[in-house]
């Protein structure tokens, strides 16, 4: 690996901080990557098994992963460090049969100006037969400008037979408004696991939509959201799981509310097949008083106890 500073292009400190925050990138990654900076691809690398090519008609990339590619990781962070950028990006991932890869995406916005900065990302995953993909996505906002930091990620997943996708999505700080949408169609024997962690504060608004349709026997999915809403922020969680075959599905929303914040969970589960088994669980409430008491007996103050409980919950 080479340091981000010793190869062209040179990234400034804000960019490097955001890359570290959203993709845990402190150095140029090994393997395939594409770093998108202020609306343009700033650096890219393809490998023998993973081709990254720009789209012709719209902005975005196609990531083509050869069948049988095992153990490679692909990093595709996006950074907006100038104020007032508004972009829509389309990224498609074609994951070949039997491949087993890790994809790390993520978007960091630093808005130090007055204009709004917005990144809308449309990610489509075509997961081939028997392939496995782990997809990690982190969203983060920083900068003290009055312009808003807006992100609307939309993920579409088409899972072929016996494939699996595990998606971890995290948004901890600084995004003013977000509508997060995940749509998936699962063929026989495929598995989808989605874990979302989200924290909102101030006047932020966060909306999550999960739509999963299981169309083949033996498909299974588990989508869960753990969220903390502080101050005056508002979150809404929609999930819709449809079982059209002998399948099993689980959705879960676990929310902690603080201050004057609000969280709604609006789940829908639809079983269209006698052997579809679907569960939804939701629990929203403030931090349990006894958890704070317990940590106080270990010598933590009330504020320290709250901070530990929240960071553990969102870990």
């Amino acid at each position: 690996m080479t340091d981000l500073t010793d190869k062209k292009p040179v990234f400034d400190k804000i960019t490097k901080d955001l890359l570290a925050e959203v993709a845990e990138l402190h150095q140029r990654p090994t393997g395939a990557y594409n770093i998108r900076l202020n609306g343009e691809s700033a650096d890219r690398n393809s490998t023998a098994n993973v081709q990254i090519v720009s789209k012709e008609d719209v902005s975005g990339i196609d990531v083509i992963i050869a069948p049988g590619t095992v153990g490679e990781s692909i990093h595709i962070p996006v950074v907006l460090s100038e104020s007032g950028i508004n972009e829509v990006v389309y990224n498609d991932f074609h994951i070949g049969e039997g491949a087993d890869v890790l994809i790390v995406a993520g978007c960091g916005i630093h808005n130090g100006g007055a204009a709004d900065s917005q990144h809308d990302g449309m990610h489509r995953f075509f997961v081939g037969k028997g392939a496995r993909v782990r997809y990690v996505e982190k969203h983060y906002g920083a900068g003290d400008g009055s312009g808003k930091r807006l992100m609307n990620p939309h993920t579409v997943a088409e899972l072929a037979e016996d494939s699996s996708m595990e998606m971890e999505t995290v948004q901890i700080r600084g995004v003013d408004s977000t509508i997060r949408r995940t749509d998936a169609v699962l063929q026989a024997g495929s598995t989808l696991i989605v874990r979302e962690k989200i924290m909102t504060h101030g006047q932020q608004l966060g909306e999550t939509h999960f739509n999963v349709e299981m169309v083949g026997d033996g498909a299974s999915c588990s989508v869960s959201s753990r969220s903390v809403a502080q101050d005056d922020s508002v979150q809404v969680f929609y999930s819709n799981i449809v079982g059209n075959a002998a399948c099993s599905g689980h959705s879960e929303c676990d929310g902690i509310i603080m201050d004057r914040a609000k969280i709604s969970a609006i789940p829908e589960i639809v079983a269209n097949h006698i052997d579809a088994s679907l569960i939804h669980e939701a629990a929203i409430g403030k931090i349990a008083g006894e958890q704070i008491l317990k940590l106080q007996t270990l010598g933590l103050t009330e504020q320290e106890a709250e901070a530990q409980i929240i960071s553990g919950f969102l870990k």
Binding site: A288, Q291, L293, K294, T297, G299, I309, F313
Partner: peptide, 21 residues
């Protein structure tokens, strides 16, 4: 509670508290 804990008092709960995460 915190002050007493810092003075060196500990308490194991009859019903221990569970924490998600």
């Amino acid at each position: 509670i915190t002050e007493r804990a810092k003075l060196g008092i500990s308490f194991a709960f009859q019903q221990p508290v569970r924490f998600k995460g």
